[in-house]
Amino acid sequence: MDFVGAYTGAHVKFLLEGFLVTLQVAFISIICSFLIGSIIGILRYAKIPVLSQVLMLLVETIRNLPLLLIIFFTYFALPEMGMKLEIKTAAIVALTIFEAAMLSEIVRSGLLSIEKGQIEAARSSGLTYLQTLQYVILPQALRRMVPPIVSQFISLLKDTSLAVIIALPELTHNAQIINGQSVNYTIPTYLLVAVMFFVVNFSLSLVARRLETRQKAGKHKTEIQKLKTQNLQA
């Protein structure tokens, strides 16, 4: 092991450049997949005839395919259909497609978790279906969805390393190049790569845990208030 040779200024800079690409691809994919996944999840929750069935088929198909295959298809197959994409764009598209399918299920499950009694109460008070969805269902569901969504974002960040198969100059790709210079660089290089991923992912996991704890505390507080109300009425 040669930590001194592996951690030269040029090597560390090269790894940081790759990590910046990783973060850029992950960030853009997170935004796009969240928007698309939310729309799909809401449309499936609405149970629109035909459209819901078509979306369900697409989501289930994508969720049961390896992400590696989707990356291969986006970069190698789409050009055969007249849609040639740059490496970074292909990686973003593949990650967005895969993660949007995953997030759509989280969104749909979050919407379904809202008690029917609240929905019926909102409708009986004169709110339309869209108003009920906007003002009653979505605000509550979003709070419940935050922890699993953050966890999914962590998975997305780690999944960016799969784009190494199409030579995306991200962190693991650059680590391979450095490792190719000497076998003595293997452990030091990948140790630094692991630390970089760990710092970001662990920070996100702490955020997810804190949000989940707050959510449970809020739910517990609500249940106590309900019990107090019932006791007063009794």
Rank of each mutant, 00 (worst) to 15 (best):
D2P: 12
D2M: 04
D2F: 06
V4M: 13
G5P: 14
G9W: 09
V12F: 10
V12W: 02
E17H: 01
G18I: 00
T22N: 01
S29M: 04
C32W: 08
S33I: 08
S33N: 03
I39W: 07
I39F: 07
I40P: 07
I42C: 08
I42Q: 13
R44Y: 05
Y45L: 00
A46K: 11
A46C: 10
K47C: 04
V50S: 08
Q53R: 13
V54R: 10
L57F: 15
V59T: 13
T61Y: 11
T61N: 12
P66I: 15
L67V: 00
I71C: 01
F72K: 02
F73E: 04
T74E: 07
T74F: 13
Y75D: 05
F76C: 11
M81H: 07
K84M: 14
L85G: 08
A90I: 04
A90Y: 01
A94F: 09
I97K: 14
A100P: 10
A101Y: 10
I106K: 03
I106Y: 00
I106P: 02
R108G: 07
R108Q: 11
S109W: 02
L111N: 10
K116N: 10
K116P: 07
I119D: 08
E120T: 12
E120P: 12
A122W: 03
R123V: 10
S124A: 15
G126A: 04
T128D: 07
Q134T: 14
Q134W: 13
Q134N: 11
V136C: 08
I137W: 09
I137F: 07
V146R: 12
P147Q: 13
S151H: 02
S151M: 04
I154N: 04
I154A: 05
L156F: 00
L157H: 00
S161R: 10
L168T: 06
P169I: 10
P169S: 09
E170F: 05
Q176V: 00
I178C: 06
N179F: 15
N184M: 13
I187T: 15
T189P: 12
V193Y: 01
A208C: 03
R214S: 15
Q215D: 14
A217P: 06
G218E: 12
G218C: 10
G218W: 15
K228M: 11
T229S: 12
N231I: 14
N231G: 14
